[in-house]
Design a protein around this nucleic acid. Sequence first.
DNA 1: TGATCTTTTGTACGATAGTACAAATCTCAT
DNA 2: ATGAGATTTGTACTATCGTACAAAAGATCA
Lengths: 236, 236
Amino acid sequence: MARKPTSKETARKPNMREAILAAAEELFATNGFNAVSVRDIAQAAGANPGSVTYHFKTKDGLLLEIYRRHCGPMNLRRSELLAAAKRVRDLQDRLEAIVRAYVVPAFTSGSDLAGGGARFTRLRAVMSAEGNEVARRIIAQTFDDTSHAFIDAVHESLPHIPRPDIVWRSHFLLGALYYSLVTPDRVSRLSRGEADGSDAASAIEQLVQATVAAFQAPALDQAAPARRRAAASSKT
Amino acid sequence: MARKPTSKETARKPNMREAILAAAEELFATNGFNAVSVRDIAQAAGANPGSVTYHFKTKDGLLLEIYRRHCGPMNLRRSELLAAAKRVRDLQDRLEAIVRAYVVPAFTSGSDLAGGGARFTRLRAVMSAEGNEVARRIIAQTFDDTSHAFIDAVHESLPHIPRPDIVWRSHFLLGALYYSLVTPDRVSRLSRGEADGSDAASAIEQLVQATVAAFQAPALDQAAPARRRAAASSKT
DNA sequence: TGATCTTTTGTACGATAGTACAAATCTCAT
DNA sequence: ATGAGATTTGTACTATCGTACAAAAGATCA
């Protein structure tokens, strides 16, 4: 084999590095980190396995770069939306806007990257579930600021709710958000086709609506004890 | 006869099969399926790698057996609690009892197995995130009945809410439940120590409270459109 | 006890993992 | 065109993977 005419027949890849990143993001997000091999990624990107090593040195390095690529834009977008939300005058609307500022960037792209932020958010969900070390480090130092800002904003809208309760509820929000991206088919299945779990717009609206109501629920201390007993009769 | 030796000390291995199951459950739940090797499991159980093959044939078979071991008891427990909840007369209390019937067995053991159901639920969360094939098959055919029963029960308590909305909200519930078991430390961290994410009792109460409020939120169709964009001081 | 069945051990095999590295190829200013 | 740097390719190495299997050890009961 003297030569191979790669320049003409295949669509010219102006940036193989981007193709590898996109392929890895997709594969990691759907199968987890360890289930995907470097060779799988290379094949999906139409690249050579060695090319992955060249661009990202290690598999961890590849994951790291995926995070680096998305964290900035997404958090920036969240900050902007949060700042705008805080300016909403009506209290009820403001809370909804705050929640929306947290949810929307997770579903839609926070940058120019194709495929949207949903894929990256799903990736985060999967890495979180797997207890991935690289992801854990990045998340703690990158997203905690954003989370705190969000929690503070919610707390300002609901000053009568203790902060720990708000932390719990925003934690539930993130879990619900993650799970909606991980197994959207379950929504379609359980609703017998009446709802489409893959529809981002529906997911956002439903999630915002439910979360706002959850945040507005009375705090545990002041509400539950009075009528606790009737509900939980059998207990270990 | 010598007394039954406690399983913590080296002592004797009365049931290596159980030790392997427990070790695998723990390792899978914390690291994912592919990140854990059969050798890791064997070592954690104090067994020989070949012993795993003998008892469970394959790694998939081991995972399958873990599911088989838990699904029955947990769903049975849920059915019992759900039946009891449906008998609660007060509407508000009934809804709370229904939600509790869904949540409690996921946190506490549904059987005599040590370690509680939390570990298994966390395992399910991780397998779900990884898109594990074995788990996917079992879940669809084992948990969907339970989920439908739960959704129907909630719908009976809230007949004015469209069923798809209830599906979405119960989906969020499961996501929040999963995430609370996957990264409890995040709650502790974001609350700056004011809340303990590892405390099952707190998690349950917070989750039930938030979820009941979410279920009771007005449906999307009838509430949102009126005040979506403009500031709405008027109530329709 | 000895025979038989169950369980555990030790080892090995083929497949595949991540990664390194040199050769081949491409890009582009000069 | 040419040479230098950037990128891609091909291949190989070592480690570890899941699993198979024969031998050793333990258990059970006539």
